[in-house]
Design a protein around this nucleic acid. Sequence first.
DNA 1: GTAATGTTTTACCAACCGGTCAAATTATCA
DNA 2: TGATAATTTGACCGGTTGGTAAAACATTAC
Lengths: 216, 216
Amino acid sequence: MVLPRAARTQRRTRIQEEKEELILEAALDVFATHGFRGSTIDQIAEVAGMSKPNLLYYFRTKEAMHRALIDRVLDNWLDPLREFDAEGSPVTEIRSYIRRKLEMARDFPRESRLFANEILQGAPHIEDELKGPLKSLVDEKAEVIRSWAKSGKIAKCDPYHLIFAIWSTTQHYADFDVQVRGVLGEEHSGEGRFEDAARFLEQLFVSGLEIRNGGA
Amino acid sequence: MVLPRAARTQRRTRIQEEKEELILEAALDVFATHGFRGSTIDQIAEVAGMSKPNLLYYFRTKEAMHRALIDRVLDNWLDPLREFDAEGSPVTEIRSYIRRKLEMARDFPRESRLFANEILQGAPHIEDELKGPLKSLVDEKAEVIRSWAKSGKIAKCDPYHLIFAIWSTTQHYADFDVQVRGVLGEEHSGEGRFEDAARFLEQLFVSGLEIRNGGA
DNA sequence: GTAATGTTTTACCAACCGGTCAAATTATCA
DNA sequence: TGATAATTTGACCGGTTGGTAAAACATTAC
């Protein structure tokens, strides 16, 4: 049989599992650094250590590879926000959300860059996800934050822009890594920068959202 | 004479000025949305409304166009940070730095995306600028912030990460515009979102950097 | 006006791109 | 083992890419 993968309905082989894994790993490397249009199948094939037709045996088109990658990564990417707990203490929740996002920036920078590239270039492949599942999740969590503000647990603030601020500050360390290292210089480009960032951001957001006595 | 522009040492004609302007404008459009590798000369030529060879008469290669664009935009991009004044009041300076950066995100989103694409993809064309002029400027301003913290005018914090936080939160509204609009929904995607963002970010940074009475 | 220079276009090229095909090779399992 | 299905490969295709050559056309300087 030479039916392409998408047409096969039955169980997947061991080889299929392994090779698809291998390909997506290589594709993540390439798509994350060059964006969809800037990436070539040959390049992914080379990174994956297989021939181009072989790669196309598992994913029929470049778009199919990208799609599969997005689908697999998006869920994990949103996990930290899902864990955001309405019942917890606001300060603790925000603090640990920041921490989790920073850990992801440190441990999965390619995944972050994959989305950054995609969104930067107008999100042509994930617009539906943005306006659907992502928006819903954010709406839900924004409501939680709003209720915290209303009941006087944190300062009044726009919950959406708070979430944007946490996203941008944390993902900055993955997406703009080259710039961060360039500015900090060789001597401060060890993993310690993530600790420094965590300290700074926790201070900024926690005391920035505290209710002040004489505040307006 | 058919000598390419780079070899011409003398005065530039009116046509040259106009056409180079036109080309760079089109190139900004294209490079900002697709990144260097994802952009094609044909595409830029089409946006500029001229033929490809005509375009290549003014800029001999795709890289030359990109280079010229980066050089022209980088300076303006750093202006807000340069205006950051050591003699001013910390709160005022930080507040107006945020405001200026947000205005640039609103008024010059393509310029922001041009750099975002470049840095995301490893800054292959501007690494020198990052480690040279940019680093120097940031070092200088970081020293100012450090002195403010030392003399008790603002809370103690890592000045580099403060600058990163201001960059990321403000540029987010240019670079991730599609996501911001997707999440906010049609009804909140007017220009008002920049006002909301300004209000939120000023509150966050100003009260986040205030000296607290009972603070650690 | 006309000669020199500056600008634009048409036609083109070699390399690369995403993708196909058929044949060769390897794994699976009765 | 051998038949059958799964995997891999080399050769190839039409379209696109960055870039060139040379001639046609426009502008300027005298």
